[in-house]
Amino acid sequence: MTVRHAQLLSSLAAVFVTVACSSYYEIPIETPIRPKLDVSAFQRVLVAGFVSGGTEDVDGNLETTRLLRSQLRTKSDLRVIDTDVLPLMDVASQSRGAGATPAATAGTPAAIREVKDLEPYEQVFANVEYWKRIGEEYQNPLIVTGTVMFTPLSRSGIVQREQEVFDSVGRRSVVPIRTYMERKGFTLQPRFVFIDGRTGTTLYSENFREEILYNANQTTPALSSYFELMDRLLPNFLSTLSSQKIKGTRVLLQ
C-alpha cells in the first residue's frame, strides 16, 4: 500500500466522522484530460514496432504492436496504418555497420536480457533519416515506436495476508497474519517514443514500469501477465495522443 493510498483511506475514514456535522452530496464527475502531445497535424499513426527483450515466452515487439494498434483504432481519432512490424533490431545493427560514432559501433548483446542490454539499440530512435524515409513511405504519419522489456521477477520476504479463523462457538473472523513467502511474477518496462513522420525527429517519449507478483506455486502464463500489466499503463499511453475522461466521485459541500 502506498503512502497516498494510506492517506486516502484515512481521509475516507475521517469523512464519515465529519459528514455528520455538515451537509454533503456525493457527485460523479468526469475529468477530461487533454492529450500530452498535439497530434492535430497528423491524420495517421504508424505503430512501427519495438526493440524488445526479456523473457522468450512473450514476443514483446509483436504483442505490443498488435495491442497498441487495436487500442488506437478504437480510442483515438487517428487512422491506424496496418503494415508489417519494422525489423528495428536489424535497422539498429545496419546503422551501426555504417555507423559513425564509437558508441554506435559498440557490440550489442546476442540476446536482450536486461534493460542495459537495450542501450546499444537506443540510437535507432535518433536516426532522423531512417524515420523520415519511413514517414515518406507511409504519408507522413505520427510514428510510435520504442523499447519493451518484459522480464521474470522473483521476490521473497515477509508479507501480510488475511486468514479466516473460527472461534470455539464457530464464529468466523478474518485476522491479518504475517508470513514468509516466495513470490514470482513479471516486470514490464516499456518506453514509448513518438516520432514526427514528416521530419523524423522525436516529439516525445515516456518510460513506464509495472510489476506483478504471484504465489510461487501459482502458475500464470507469461502472456496473461503481460496483458494484465499493459492494461494498467494503457490509459497513460492513450492520454498522450487523445483526450481521455477520468471518471470519479467528489463530495460537494453546503
Binding site: L8, E206, S239, R250, V251, L253
Partner: peptide
Amino acid sequence: ASIKQNYELFKEINDRTTRPATQ
C-alpha cells in the same frame, strides 16, 4: 476531511497530466 479527500483525488489525476516526459 471532505475537502482533503477531494483534493487528494484531484492530485492523483493532476499528477498524471503533469508527469515529466523524456526527450
